[in-house]
Design a protein around this nucleic acid. Structure first.
Lengths: 235, 235
DNA sequence: AAAACATACTTGTACGTACAAGTTATTTGA
DNA sequence: TCAAATAACTTGTACGTACAAGTATGTTTT
């Protein structure tokens, strides 16, 4: 395998948390326990737990242990993996514009690189709903040259980021975001069911990937009245 | 000293970046160079660089090195230390309500602990401006019992968080945030100079500290038209 | 009964070593 | 001349060790 050991243990513990085997407030196995369970050194066990801490699943307290934190109900900002796994199962997605080659829009909040500007981009637009409530209007753009065959084949498991990972081995390494509260225009007002010029939250994101030349640009417009955006941050 | 070695090196490199000794795109000393410069092991050097990466100052690329990232112009969300150091020097702060003992407000987005509810809180309200533009209305609440003498003495270096650190040895360990786009009420409209019921961004934060019983609650209401809120995230 | 101490846990810091794997520049060979 | 191999860097993973420091639970002492 080329997946590192610490990451396997991290993922294994993560799914146990997500499945409820470890509930909020529960102690994960201590570093030394993980060592003997998995036959690893403390360095590796620590790395796995530190990653879970970065992701906000656990809190680590000196002298006590690694404790499962309360999970957020609201959509996760900064959770790199999109939001289908963050919010639950009653989420549906409608394509307003299927993926296609289109020119870059003007006035994007992040500067494009020269090589990006030279050719058109792939773009698609989706509307995300939770139950009956439209919650988020999502636009995605990226260079049309980097992902051959993307337009021909569909998404893996309906997830854009999983498709990137499985078909193209592209992993998200980070993101820059810009947040603005804006009045909804006619289209947004209609789609998100907010009153005209009612406040919506616009999140402009530039995702950086393991390919340093390849970026993904997203614009999310959110109706935060029912579903506020949440996030966590831990040292 | 009880400040760990890696943190000293981290802070030393951070201030060099902030002062411009290392510009955007520059390479920081490699792990092995840091080892010989400071007489430390690679474990310690790595820890310092990993922390800088978490804070968003550098990017670390296998085979290449640790490279200084572009700095954001906009206010840093998630930058634990408040924003006086993030945005520059032309920032001024006006107290609308000086720190005083007041009852907890109702309808706070985060649940209070039992011990917090039992006694009133310390609260203050500030208006932050950049140049001539009012940018952020800030309210802070925290338990009145934990910080003896807080109301009698002023802030250290005009910074709330520096006061917590220097006088009370309280360090911020993390935060939970909730973001909402809202219509401005009369007060907000007047103070932030946005039109009535114009969109503003409300950020509700619960800071966790090294004292597991002590939380700081903040509510920021931002005029994001001129100064959007930005943040970064890196694995 | 209450305080002090001891013990056995936990995570945090720091040392040292080894090899894997990506990047870049140089050298070698056809 | 050009391509392949090499060397010299970089960060990533993983091993092992040691001690510091915080927490909890006893046990002893007062």
């Amino acid at each position: 395998m080329d997946i590192p050991r610490y990451r396997k243990i991290q993922n294994m513990l993560k799914s146990k948390i997500q499945q409820g085997s470890y509930g909020v407030g529960d102690h994960l196995p201590s570093e030394n326990q993980l060592c003997s369970i998995f036959n690893i050194t403390r360095t590796t066990a620590r790395k796995a737990l530190e990653e879970l801490q970065k992701e906000g699943f656990i809190e680590r307290i000196k002298g006590k242990g690694s404790i499962v934190r309360e999970r957020r109900k609201s959509l996760g900002l900064l959770n790199v993996k999109g939001f289908s796994e963050a919010v639950g199962r009653n989420v549906s997605t409608i394509f307003l514009q299927e993926p296609a080659l289109r020119p870059w829009i003007t006035g994007f909040p992040f500067p494009l690189t020269d090589s990006e500007r030279q050719s058109p981009c792939i773009h698609f637009e989706r509307l995300r709903t939770v139950g009956e409530d439209p919650v988020m209007l999502e636009n995605n753009w990226f260079s049309g040259k980097t992902l051959p065959g993307f337009l021909q084949s569909g998404f893996e498991e309906d997830s854009f980021f999983k498709t990137l990972s499985k078909k193209y081995m592209i992993e998200i390494k980070g993101s820059e975001q810009e947040l603005k509260a804006l009045p909804a225009n006619e289209k947004v007002s209609r789609l998100l069911k907010v009153k005209p010029s009612g406040p919506v939250l616009q999140i402009s994101i530039r995702f950086t990937t393991c390919n340093p030349e390849f970026f993904i640009y997203s614009e999310l417009i959110c109706n935060t009245m029912k579903y506020p955006i949440g996030n966590r941050y831990f040292l």
